[in-house]
Amino acid sequence: MAENQQQHHVTPLWVYLGVGGALLVLTVVTVAVAKVDFGVLVGVSSLNIIVAMIIASIKAILVALFFMHLIYDAKINMAVFITALLFLGVFIGLTMFDTVRRADVYELEEGPIKPKAKIYQNQ
C-alpha cells in the first residue's frame, strides 16, 4: 500500500478526437440512412428500425468504451453496464411476449373494443 505513483490511465488526445469524429460521422450516416426505405423484413415492422438501432448501438459502444474508459477500467464496471442492458432487454422482451401475442387464439382479444370507454362518453 505504499504511496506508489498512481497509474491513472491518461487516454491519448487522438483517441478522444477520433472517437468524437466517428460519432459525428455516424450521426450523419444515421440521418441519411433513415431517408432510404429498406422495406419490410418478415415479422418486424420495418428494417429501418433495425439499421437505426445498429448504428445507435455502435455509437453507444464507442462512447462507453472510450469516453467512459470502460476499456481501461476494472472489468466489474463493464459487468455492471452489461447487466443493466441485459435486464432492460428482459423487461422489454418478456412484456412483448404478452402484448404481441395477445391475439394468438382469438382475434377479438387483440385490439381495443372502441376508442372511448363508455364512462367517458357522457362527460
Binding site: 435486464f87 428482459v90 423487461f91 418478456l94 411476449f97 404478452d98 402484448t99 404481441v100 401475442r101 395477445r102 394468438d104 387464439v105 382479444e109
Partner: peptide, 22 residues
C-alpha cells in the same frame, strides 16, 4: 426473480403464450 413477474397476472387478460412462459 426478474423473469417471473407474470405469474401475478395469469388471469389479467395476458396472452396465453406469456402465461406459459411465466
Amino acid at each position: 426473480s426478474f423473469l417471473v413477474w407474470g405469474h401475478h397476472m395469469f388471469v389479467s387478460g395476458q396472452s396465453r403464450f406469456a402465461a406459459m412462459i411465466f
